[in-house]
């Protein structure tokens, strides 16, 4: 027995499908006979998702200006109720993905399996693999009822890969009356300007933590990042402290990064942080506490004062360039 039909929530910005969606599509088509996407983006993504293995775009219309959680969950639940649903719905652990998953779970009275980094077929039912305790233990969970399985998949769990499929067919998926639940509307959007490579895409990430001591010292992280054409990142501790914006945060609550090289400066390596960067190909850590958990995942660990090591490192790199 195999999983027959999977729906993937497809997110897109200006007609360009999110990488996280493409990652999930790659895994979904490995697991199921039929893969279709549900989206608020419309028919314009049909070619791109088709090339990644989806055969159908279920386009949810009339969502302009609305927060997407309620209308998308409403449309999916209505289709399931009408007997046209899939075996499982997969969504990225994104702002929209979490909103849809929560509402959908109540509508069909089924749980959500969250923080999934891998999916396996367990006797014809999907099971999700979730790392806990900062990734030292994996828990594999499956549903025990015949209800549609809802999974929230962490970014960068799979590699996006084209399947060479034709453009997906497009069908409308209608939104039922949402009552008060659909009343939240977006009145304006603000894009925070950032220079240099983005955390998601950068080959090198330089991140700073509380060990930097004070806000002004984050400049060392920025300087090093600039020299290495890296994206600057941060631990939750210094985001919470207001040193840098939330968009810098690497970890469970922030971004998951898997760069070629991750440099952690003054970061102790709390579970919250390790989850977001443990998949990096190479890790360098600089921390004064030899017992810091970050060293357990580091290829190179310097037990020392970031205030001494970073300036010397920056100076040495400037001398080379």
């Amino acid at each position: 027995m195999t999983v027959s039909k999977i729906w993937v929530l497809a997110e897109a910005t200006d007609g360009k499908v999110a990488t996280t969606t493409l990652e999930i599509l790659a895994k979904a088509r490995e697991l199921a006979d039929t893969v279709e996407v549900v989206t608020a983006a419309g028919a314009e993504i049909a070619t791109e998702v088709g090339a990644h293995g989806a055969t159908k775009v279920l386009a949810v219309g009339g969502t302009d200006g609305k927060l997407l959680g309620a209308p998308l969950a409403g449309a999916i639940a209505a289709a399931i109720e009408a007997g046209n649903g899939p075996d499982a719905v997969l969504m990225a652990t994104s702002y929209t993905g979490r909103d849809v998953a929560g509402r959908l779970s109540v509508k069909i009275d089924a749980p959500v399996i969250t923080n999934v980094v891998d999916l396996v077929d367990s006797d014809g039912r999907l099971a999700g693999v979730e790392p806990i305790f900062g990734g030292v233990t994996d828990v594999i969970t499956k549903f025990t009822t015949d209800k549609v399985g809802i999974f929230l998949v962490r970014p960068k769990s799979f590699a996006a890969e084209e399947s060479g499929g034709a453009a997906a067919a497009v069908e409308e998926l209608s939104v039922p009356d949402l009552g008060a639940t659909g009343a939240a509307v977006v009145t304006s959007r603000f894009v925070e300007e950032k220079t240099g490579p983005s955390l998601d895409e950068a080959a090198v990430v330089v991140a700073g933590g509380r060990g930097l001591g004070e806000k002004e010292n984050y400049q060392l992280v920025e300087d090093l990042a600039k020299l290495l054409q890296a994206a600057p990142g941060a631990s939750r501790a210094i985001v919470d402290a207001g040193w840098v914006p939330y968009s810098y945060q690497v970890g469970q609550t922030g971004k998951v990064v898997k760069p070629t090289l991750y440099i952690a400066a003054g970061i102790s390596g709390a579970t919250q942080h390790l989850v977001g960067m443990k998949g990096s190909k190479n890790i360098i850590a600089i921390n004064k506490d030899a017992e810091a958990p970050i060293f357990a995942v580091s290829d190179l660990g310097i037990v020392g004062d970031v205030h001494k090591v970073l300036p010397k490192l920056i100076e040495a790199l400037q001398a080379r360039s």
């Binding site: 749980p111 399996i113 367990s122 099971a127 790392p131 233990t137 994996d138 594999i140 549903f143």
Partner: peptide, 11 residues
């Protein structure tokens, strides 16, 4: 719950 943990493994 409607779900069960089928395995716990060392990552």
């Amino acid at each position: 719950g409607g779900q069960e943990i089928i395995e716990v493994a060392q990552a």
